[in-house]
Structures are given as structure tokens and as C-alpha cells.
């Protein structure tokens, strides 16, 4: 029974955190930038959401405000990277570190418990009488589908196409009359907006916000992306790729649930995640090498 509950929990966790992974995908794969703002903006989403709930703001409005806070965080990284020409990784780190203090300021303390306040999940629970796990799943799925549809549409538009092209070939995009500073900043804003939205949903679901809740989020996001890619491949259509990331996020949570059930110490989880990402990034390269080698052996062997 414990394992079934754990799996159900993993599924809903995976979907809520999957939104964060979608955000990471936009910078990591589409813009080809390793944006480390994530760890900060995820907690910013949580912090803004917590303060909203404590002050009686409608939980859905709280999600929207959190997303906007994420946009702003992404914009700051974007300005640092494009206008100030700070390398993307460093620009992200600067924002992330700065956000730690800002998140503390927003909440006024390092941890805000929210159990006595209404949230989107408890509201739906009261409305439908479903169990909390089901409610998280339903809301998570609805938001995820909305986000995937919106991303699919946006990155097919004129401006969205130029954001994708910027990650591909910046020089060409400028030669075609697009200000790449704008496209990069837009990409970073959308990315961190999604990440903050994910942070806000996780906050509402777990019933507290913590200033440290974002630590290692980037690695979890990467894990979801690479797990999705290992299973579904690199090449699929855009909609498939977005879906594969959410699936990757769910699989990541299932792996975590399994190893925790097997008795792994929660303190070791981050190490496990890091190893998982390293392996998942290595596997395609090793497999390619193997394929090359076996082809060589096959072809050269024939000539003997």
C-alpha cells in the first residue's frame, strides 16, 4: 500500500515540478543558455505565493502574481546578460544569489507555513470531495496542458520563431533584423515565469514556502529533460518534446520514490540526482561511440 501511495505522490509531484523543467528546457535547449537563475526564481515563486495566501489573496491570483515575479527575475538575468554582457552562467548566478535575500525579504522569514490557509487544491477538494492526491493530479494536468499548448503556440509565432533561432544561430538572427538582446531576454523571462509558477504550485501543495526550496532545482530540471530525451529521443516534434519533459519529470519522481522506499537517506537525494543527470547526459554519447565502433568493426571486418 505504501508504494502505491508513494507512486501516486510521485506522479503529482512530477507534474507540478514538470512545469519547472519546461522552464529550464526553454533556456537550456531552445536558447542554448545554462540559466542558473532557476534555484532563486523557483523559491521566489513560492515566497510570493506564500505572502499572497497569508494576506488573503485569491490562490489563483497568487499563482499569477508569482509567475509575474518569475518574469521579473528572468528579465534581470536577461539585462545582466545582454546589456551588461555578463556571461549567461554568471548572470544567472548573480540573480540567483540576489534572489535569496529578496526571497527572505518577501517572506520576512525563512519558512512560511500555510496549512491554515486556502489554496487551489483545498478549494477543489471541498468542491468535488476528491482525495488530495487526485486533486493535485487534476490541477497539475490542467495547468501543464495549458502551458504546453501556450508554449507550442508561442514558439510557432513570428517572435517565438526568432527566439528559437537565436539559440540556433545568433549571427543569422541579427542579420535578419532581429534584436537578439530582446529575444534572449524574452526567453529568460518566459522560462523563469514558468519556474516561479511551478514554485508557487508546489508551495500551495506542500503547505509551506521555504527560502531554500529551490536549491538544486536546476539539476532536477535537467534530470527531467535528459530522462525525457533518453526515452523519447532528441528529434521529435515540438509538442512531443515538451510532453516528454513532463514525463521525464514524473519518471524522475518515481525513481526518487523508489530509492527512498528502499531506504535511501533524504540527505543523499541531491547527490543521487546529480549522478542521475551525469549518467543520463553520458549515455547517449557512449551509445553513439559504441554504435560507431560496432559499425567500424562490421564494415572493416568484411573487407578482410
Amino acid at each position: 500500500m505504501g508504494i502505491v501511495l508513494a507512486m501516486q505522490g510521485a506522479l503529482s509531484q512530477g507534474i507540478l515540478w514538470g512545469l519547472m523543467a519546461l522552464g529550464v528546457y526553454i533556456t537550456f535547449r531552445l536558447l542554448d543558455i545554462a540559466d542558473l537563475t532557476v534555484d532563486g526564481s523557483f523559491a521566489t515563486g513560492g515566497a510570493v505565493c506564500a505572502v499572497c495566501l497569508v494576506n488573503g489573496v485569491n490562490p489563483i491570483l497568487a499563482l499569477i502574481l508569482s509567475t509575474i515575479a518569475g518574469f521579473i527575475a528572468g528579465w534581470i538575468t536577461g539585462v545582466l546578460h545582454t546589456k551588461c554582457q555578463i556571461p549567461a552562467i554568471l548572470a544567472g548566478i548573480l540573480t540567483q544569489i540576489g534572489l535569496y535575500s529578496i526571497n527572505l525579504r518577501i517572506m520576512g522569514r525563512s519558512n512560511t507555513p500555510l496549512l491554515q490557509y486556502d489554496n487551489v487544491f483545498s478549494q477543489l477538494e471541498e468542491l468535488t470531495g476528491l482525495s488530495s492526491n487526485w486533486v493535485v493530479l487534476i490541477i497539475g494536468l490542467i495547468v501543464t496542458i495549458l502551458v504546453i499548448v501556450a508554449l507550442y503556440w508561442y514558439f510557432g509565432t513570428e517572435i517565438g520563431s526568432s527566439i528559437r533561432a537565436t539559440g540556433n544561430n545568433e549571427q543569422m538572427v541579427r542579420a535578419l533584423g532581429v534584436n537578439t538582446n530582446v529575444t534572449k531576454t524574452l526567453g529568460l523571462m518566459i522560462s523563469n515565469g514558468l519556474i516561479a509558477l511551478s514554485g508557487a504550485l508546489v508551495t500551495q501543495q506542500q503547505g509551506y514556502a521555504d527560502v531554500r526550496m529551490g536549491i538544486g532545482a536546476i539539476v532536477i530540471g535537467l534530470a527531467s529533460i535528459v530522462i525525457g530525451e533518453v526515452i523519447f529521443g532528441h528529434k521529435g516534434a515540438f509538442g512531443t518534446r515538451l510532453t516528454s519533459i513532463v514525463v521525464g519529470s514524473v519518471i524522475y519522481r518515481i525513481i526518487v520514490a523508489v530509492v527512498l522506499q528502499m531506504g535511501l537517506n533524504t540527505d543523499d537525494l541531491k547527490l543521487l540526482t546529480a549522478i542521475l543527470v551525469a549518467i543520463a547526459l553520458t549515455v547517449p554519447i557512449v551509445m553513439n561511440k559504441q554504435k560507431q565502433l560496432s559499425m567500424y568493426k562490421k564494415l572493416t571486418g568484411k573487407e578482410k
Partner: peptide, 11 residues
């Protein structure tokens, strides 16, 4: 779309 404004129309 070189040199034209790029908006939210389909690409």
C-alpha cells in the same frame, strides 16, 4: 520578415 516587426502572428 527581415526588417519587419515580428509579432504574435503565426511564424
Amino acid at each position: 520578415r527581415r526588417g519587419k516587426k515580428r509579432g504574435l502572428k503565426w511564424g
